[in-house]
């Protein structure tokens, strides 16, 4: 019997009532972006927003609750941007789409900052065992510029250690989802793949919680997918941008025990129907006897959406599992 659960990927849109308030407190320019050194007033707005957003997930009857990453300005690069050994430089685009992040330039050793751990500590005060979302080491190494480690391989190794250090500082969590869009967008060379896999294995070995490697804006390279299966980690797919190629991987190479499937489009206001979600979930389950858990998910973070559509999409995820027999 396959267990179906609902979740969603961070980051979330800020609730509308905090948008004005934070604009006033922080301004509209680059110096108003998150630095990790916000004052108590700004942090209290984020705390209220976090509490609100957890309530939204509970209202939608989402099974696996996340923190929401409301403080994040830089969709994936945040943990680097707030790090003391990283310079946040000019605005650049992510993956040829219209979203911007500050270019993180690593100028010193990437020690453990604990920034995201603190967010999760605060979440743990509101709900037991939230799930954690964090960028994966390969994607971080692709987005960041190195001015310290000296070679691409040592930079990728350092990113692996950085991610491991950060997630080891987390409080008790449910799942850890590592976001790896770069695995689809720009697959690693054989050498980089080996370093990446070694990092994931080490992270997995130091965590008691389940880990899911989630890609989006495409699908996995076949080799990377096979190797991830061998590592026995959860695997996350984007079924909004790729359907047949994801199913081909599952059919031809096998399936993971836990599959997170992005079926709700995080970047379009069109709200998915029960039937549309069910079709994909059924097709995934049909692919293999190995699947034990299916996490019904959004394909990307939901911050791209206006607040009303964000709430509706959470509702789609929650009600699907409720009606389909979830936890």
């Amino acid at each position: 019997m396959v267990q179906i659960m609902s979740s969603s990927l961070g980051m979330y849109p800020l609730p509308d009532w905090t948008k004005d308030e934070l604009s006033k407190l922080k301004g509209h320019q680059r110096d108003g972006l998150i630095s990790g050194n916000e004052n108590a007033l700004i942090n209290s707005v984020y705390d209220s927003a976090r509490e609100f957003i957890i309530g939204e997930q509970q209202n939608a009857e989402i099974d696996i609750i996340i923190e929401g990453q409301l403080r994040w300005d830089d969709m994936l690069a945040h943990p680097l941007i707030v790090h003391e050994s990283v310079d946040a430089r000019g605005l650049v685009r992510y993956y040829d789409n219209n979203n911007f992040y500050r270019e993180p330039v690593v100028t010193g050793e990437l020690t453990v900052s604990g920034d995201v751990a603190q967010e999760l500590e605060k979440t743990s005060e509101l709900i037991r065992f939230p799930s954690a979302i964090f960028p994966g080491p390969y994607t971080l190494s692709q987005l960041a510029t190195d001015e310290y480690y000296g070679s691409e391989t040592s930079f990728l190794e350092a990113m692996g250690e950085f991610v491991q250090g950060e997630v080891n500082a987390f409080p008790d969590i449910n799942h850890l989802i590592l976001l790896e869009p770069s695995l689809s967008f720009n697959p690693p060379s054989t050498e980089h793949k080996e370093i990446f896999l070694k990092s994931i294995e080490e992270i997995k070995n130091t965590l008691k919680e389940e880990i899911v490697i989630q890609t989006y804006w495409g699908t996995f390279d076949r080799e990377v997918y096979s190797d991830l299966l061998e590592l026995d980690v959860g695997i996350g797919f984007d079924f909004v941008t790729e359907v047949e190629s994801n199913l081909a991987l599952l059919n031809e190479l096998g399936s993971p025990k836990t599959a997170s499937i992005g079926v709700v489009n995080g970047q379009n206001t069109n709200v998915e129907s029960f039937g549309e979600v069910k079709e994909i979930v059924d097709r995934v389950i049909e692919t293999g006897a190995d699947i034990q858990n299916v996490i019904v998910n959004s394909n990307t973070g939901l911050f791209y959406l206006p607040e009303n559509k964000f709430t509706e999409k959470l509702g789609v995820l929650g009600s699907f599992v409720k009606n389909e027999g979830g936890l």
Partner: peptide, 17 residues
């Protein structure tokens, strides 16, 4: 129109559908 969406930082625009 459904409401404001983030462009970058605390800059939003009413992205239409």
């Amino acid at each position: 129109f459904n409401g404001p969406v983030k462009v970058w930082g605390h800059n939003y625009f009413d992205k239409p559908s």
